[in-house]
Nucleic acid binder design. Structure first.
Lengths: 132, 132
DNA sequence: CTGTATCCAAACAGATACTG
DNA sequence: CAGTATCTGTTTGGATACAG
């Protein structure tokens, strides 16, 4: 825990003091974490990312990278070559995010089956007792 | 890490093998983590959550709770009293999520200022060199 | 190659009114 | 009290065409 839990305020404002919300606003979208994880492995250029992340559109890749750069998680390095080439790399700040992200990933790996089981159980229950 | 990182596949499919994506699909929305954190403190009833989470609509609270219940993260316990009363509680699975969530929260707390600084720096740079 | 611009469809989310 | 139903506005994201 981050020191003592302060006062443990009874009321939480989503837009306010909640730190988790901030992270989620940063990387809670569809593609950010994938990009961060990929860049955690090594520097990638635009087209590499585009190929690596199956299903992402050019538009979303651009937008997501721009947001990550704005938040100081990745750097954008254009090379004045022909053809042009742009490298994306994790910043120091971005690299620090890898650890907690990995923790989440581990959790997902560990409990993936439980979640699926719970979901099946829940959905089955709806089938057997749609008796209002 | 969850054992050896497999093959470290070069290509990641967003809908596929990425475990992080699964967690984010679970709690990556606007309200889920807040609810999980609140329920991590103690059991809450519907109206308590509604009051505690400033800004959430009844609709979103219902939908989010339903999703969390479906994924096996919270339990829903209706009491046949007058007036009716429904208690929401974290499941064992839900409680295991608190740790990685806290890790993220800590990260956010720690780096919040850096992010804001990076954002300002970035936005200022756009002001000073809109020279195409 | 690395984007931008535009258009459009679907998902998301709030407000409000109503029900058991 | 604890929802459900509906309607609507906003946001998100893909497809496509085009540009430096």
């Amino acid at each position: 825990m981050s020191a003592a839990n302060m006062d443990v305020p009874e009321t939480i404002k989503a837009t306010d003091d909640c730190a988790v919300r901030e992270v989620l606003d940063l990387v809670g979208d569809k593609w950010s974490v994938l990009i961060v994880v990929l860049l955690g492995r090594r520097t990638h250029r635009f087209s590499e990312l585009h190929r690596a992340i199956e299903g992402i559109s050019q538009r979303m890749l651009t937008l997501t990278l721009r947001a990550l750069a704005r938040d100081g998680l990745v750097t954008r390095t254009p090379h004045a070559t022909v053809p042009p080439r742009v490298d994306y790399e994790l910043t120091e700040l971005g690299r620090t995010l890898l650890a907690p992200l990995t923790a989440l990933e581990t959790w997902a790996d560990t409990h993936r089956d439980e979640i699926r089981a719970a979901r099946r159980r829940h959905d089955d229950a709806l089938q057997s007792e749609p008796r209002s």
